[in-house]
Simulated assay, not measured.
Amino acid sequence: MADVVQWLNEIQDLKRQLQKAQQAEASAHASADNWRKRYEIEAHQRRAEAESAVQPLVAAQPATSPLPPETSAKPTSDGIVDALRSDIEQKIEHLDTVAALKATLIEIWAERDRLADDFKTEQLSHAQTRKDLSMALGDAVEMLAKLNPQD
């Protein structure tokens, strides 16, 4: 009779442990889903920001020098750079004075500096996102390891 009681107690104990493990697993899955949603939102925002940064450059293209056919549907950085270079060359050819050339050069440098700052900001934001996601992944792996300590 004592053995039966002991077995029943062990069964109850194992049921509690199983229930805790299932709760921890559900929590880990919920956390992973939460981080996945955050990542998707962040990625969507980054794509939207990148697209909105490209739109003024595409819109500034003169009608006489459209983007190459392979980039007209979805501009790439090489196509945009080539088109901008062509646009700049056309503007420079029509400048008659040194003062006009200087003013154009100042505008171009200011735009270059702004774009470089935007790029650095984007790189820092990307690094932070990668760090956050790595930490979330580590947390999820840690939770899963706690669920399966024998592995």
Results as ranks from 00 to 15, higher is better:
R16M: 03
L144S: 01
N9G: 05
L115E: 06
R85E: 06
R112Y: 13
Q55F: 01
I11R: 09
A26H: 11
E122P: 00
R112C: 08
D139A: 08
P149T: 09
D113F: 03
I88D: 00
L14S: 05
A32N: 04
P62Y: 05
R16L: 09
L95E: 03
S72E: 15
Q90N: 12
L57K: 03
K120C: 07
A136W: 00
S52Y: 01
T97I: 08
K91H: 04
E25L: 13
P69S: 14
K102I: 12
D78N: 10
E10T: 09
R85M: 07
H29P: 01
K146A: 07
A26W: 07
N9H: 09
E122I: 05
Q45C: 06
A21C: 03
Q61L: 15
T76M: 06
V141A: 12
E70R: 14
S27H: 11
D113K: 12
S86P: 00
W7C: 10
Q55M: 08
T76S: 11
Q19R: 13
K120G: 08
E10Y: 05
S72T: 15
M135S: 07
I80P: 00
A110F: 07
A21F: 00
Q12S: 10
T104D: 07
A140E: 13
Q17T: 12
D151W: 12
A73W: 01
L115Y: 07
R46G: 04
Q45T: 12
I108G: 01
L101P: 00
W7H: 07
L8Q: 14
L18W: 10
E25H: 10
W35H: 09
R46Y: 02
H29N: 12
E111D: 15
E42D: 12
D82M: 09
S27L: 11
F119K: 14
S52H: 03
Q55G: 00
A59F: 04
L14G: 01
I88H: 06
K20M: 10
A26S: 14
Q12C: 05
A30N: 08
A43T: 13
Q128A: 12
D33Q: 13
S77T: 14
R36Q: 12
A28M: 10
E49H: 05
L137F: 01
A103V: 10
T121D: 12
T71N: 13
A50L: 07
P75R: 04
D82W: 02
L84R: 06
R47D: 11
A53L: 02
A63R: 11
N34D: 13
P66R: 07
S86F: 01
K37N: 14
A30Q: 12
V58P: 00
T71A: 11
D3M: 09
W109V: 14
T129M: 08
L67E: 02
R114V: 05
A140G: 05
E111S: 14
L144W: 01
Q128D: 05
A103R: 08
P56K: 01
P75G: 06
A2N: 08
P69N: 09
L137Y: 08
L144Q: 02
D3S: 09
A103C: 04
E40W: 02
V98N: 04
A32H: 03
L144A: 06
I108E: 02
Q90V: 04
